[in-house]
Simulated scan of single mutants.
Amino acid sequence: MKDRRTFLKQAGLVGLAGMLPVNSLLADDLKENTFINTEKSDSKWADGSRLVVSVSMQFEAGGQPVNAESPFPQNMQKGFVDLPGETWYQYGYKEGIPRMLDNWDKLGIKVTSHMVGSAVLKNPELAKEIVARGHEAAAHGMNWATEYSMPYETEKKFIKDGVDAIKKITGFQAVGYNANWLRRGPNTLDILQELGFKYHIDDLSRDEPFLIKVKGKDFAVVPYTIRCNDIVLIEGKNFSADQFVSQVKLEFDQLYKESETKRRQMSISFHDRIGGTPQMVAATNEIITYIQQHKGVSFKRKDEIAQMAYEDKSVIRE
């Protein structure tokens, strides 16, 4: 694959949003290496995958509130701005996502990017590029507000504003949702169903997708992870990149064994200002390359996984 600089030069991203149809993909990119070492097995996945891997790339930097949580001590005096903390977030869109995008191309996989609406509006060209390179744009709220305490109509506007920002900039109609720190409220799923969403990820209860009933209709759950998640481990300052590699490999090995007899999905999550650092991109490359050496493993965007769940009559229903 070409690197990011070549891609930008050849693609001519200016004005791209208006040219992209809803949920458009680069057809060649979607086909390219999404299924690794294909081998038919006794898989529970309809497409013959033995194990499906779902990678998330959070696009949040630029949408955070003043003095948002960071690796720096949370001891700022009232009335002052945490300036080094601001630069930590800036790294996410200046270096992190561009580096990850090149790595995904190198590895030949497509990911789901959960996008905060205000971050998209602040860095529109980067948001356009994510979609133009074949990745899914999923909604992640308009900003970092506490969603679970919002009244119904307030939350509905909050979610819709984020979706509208993504659509306006990228042309992509988001069908997946992730609440801030997964903390959805009692009305969230009803709102998502009402707004036309197809799935959410704010659930840690299974290692495979499943369907639930929301407002009398099917709604897909594509489980997320806090185990294989850089913000829980690396940003917590008590975990190193090599430990992350080891942990994710252990997770994969166990799920791969289980996938001989049951449907298994593995989730891995990266954040712009953490997963996009040089050490973590190197770690990610090692992890994905290791996984790709195993037969029957496919990498899928979360919208693809959700669609498979809807179409599979054997999927778990709750």
Rank of each mutant, 00 (worst) to 15 (best):
K2E: 13
K2Y: 04
V14D: 14
M19V: 05
A27R: 05
D29Q: 07
L30H: 04
T34Y: 14
F35W: 14
T38N: 10
S49M: 03
F59I: 12
M76L: 11
Q77V: 11
Q90F: 05
G92R: 08
I97P: 09
I97C: 07
P98N: 09
N103Y: 00
G108Q: 08
K110P: 01
S113I: 04
H114Q: 04
M115P: 04
G117I: 06
S118K: 13
T146S: 08
M150H: 04
E153D: 15
T154N: 12
E155S: 05
G162L: 07
I166Y: 08
K168R: 13
G171K: 07
N180F: 06
P186Y: 02
I191K: 12
L192G: 11
G196P: 07
H200P: 00
I201A: 06
E208S: 13
P209A: 13
F210Q: 02
Y224F: 11
T225M: 08
K237E: 13
F239M: 11
S240P: 03
Q243H: 03
L250H: 11
D253P: 11
Q254M: 09
Y256R: 11
K257P: 02
S259T: 10
S259P: 10
R263E: 05
M266S: 06
S269I: 04
M280D: 10
V281M: 10
N285C: 05
I291C: 02
K300G: 01
R301F: 07
D303L: 00
A306T: 04
Y310D: 02
